[in-house]
Amino acid sequence: MQTLAVPELIDTPAPGRRRVLRHWRGALLLAVACAVLAAAWQLARPAAADMLADAMPPELAAQAGQDMLRELDIHTLLPSELDGARQQRISSAFASLQAPHEGAPRHRLLFRSGHAGATAFTLPSGDIIVTDALLRALPDDGAVLAVLAHELGHLHRSHMLRRLTQEAMLPAAASIVFGNTDWLVSSVGARVPQLAWPPQAEIEADDYAADLLEHNGLSLRNLAEVQEVLSRQGSAQRAYLAIHPPCADRLAHQRERSAL
């Protein structure tokens, strides 16, 4: 007659069984503790990144942005091929906007072309980069000003600096301690044009842009129009949407502001 196999643990003497059970209990507790610590770190990570960003001296943040721009100009960006008259028209229109509330952060508008696609992004140095491909994809200068106002909102809230410290916390901490941004730039600088914003950052930048446009008598409809126009175009024109995702909450918030 065939007999059933008896689990090895049953054949183990009682002291041995207790050791095996203690081993598995210890392993389970360790796994649970690791999971709890990992979850706690994910919750604490944004706050820790904000603390690092707040601790970084403004001149060091500006140096990091300048170094990142230099690296991007070498490897990713090219000089703009946009007509000089249009560059001047956009620059003048953007510079003429009167900032709401406490004023606009120091900034510099730069035009570029290259491998980044149709996009716009900010650097901690106050540089706002907009590409030829994005300018060609937008329907008019009103939409362009809406994009630039949105980027100014990111700069106003120091979103890029906070995003960089979250992406590379150890290099950011080393930059603060040693007063040198080389490690931070080499760690994350090349990825700046691809860093996507979380929904809350997008809504905050939209709110600043809406205040700026409204303060200057410009239509808030342009904010939502940018998302709608680019979403109807080909993949080459959607680089901007990849880092500025038009989530439902954001679009609803834009429409609500436009309706006021």
Rank of each mutant, 00 (worst) to 15 (best):
P13F: 10
R17A: 04
R19F: 12
G26F: 09
L30F: 11
A33H: 02
L37E: 09
A38S: 12
A39T: 08
W41F: 11
Q42S: 10
P46D: 03
A47Y: 14
A48K: 08
A48M: 15
L52C: 02
L52S: 00
D54I: 10
M56K: 06
L60V: 09
A64L: 10
D73L: 07
H75N: 09
T76Y: 05
P79Y: 00
L82E: 10
G84S: 14
R86F: 04
Q88D: 14
S91R: 14
S92L: 13
F94S: 06
S96A: 15
A104Y: 00
R106C: 02
R112G: 02
G117D: 05
G126Y: 00
T131R: 03
P139M: 01
G153I: 05
R157H: 15
R157D: 13
M160F: 06
R163C: 04
T165C: 15
Q166C: 09
A173T: 08
I176H: 06
N180V: 11
G189R: 14
R191Q: 14
P198A: 14
I203P: 01
D207F: 00
L220R: 06
E225H: 11
Q227T: 11
E228L: 14
V229W: 09
L230P: 05
S231R: 11
R232D: 10
R232M: 08
R232F: 01
S235V: 12
A236P: 00
Y240G: 07
A242W: 05
A242C: 04
A248T: 12
A248R: 12
R250K: 13
A252C: 11
Q254Y: 08
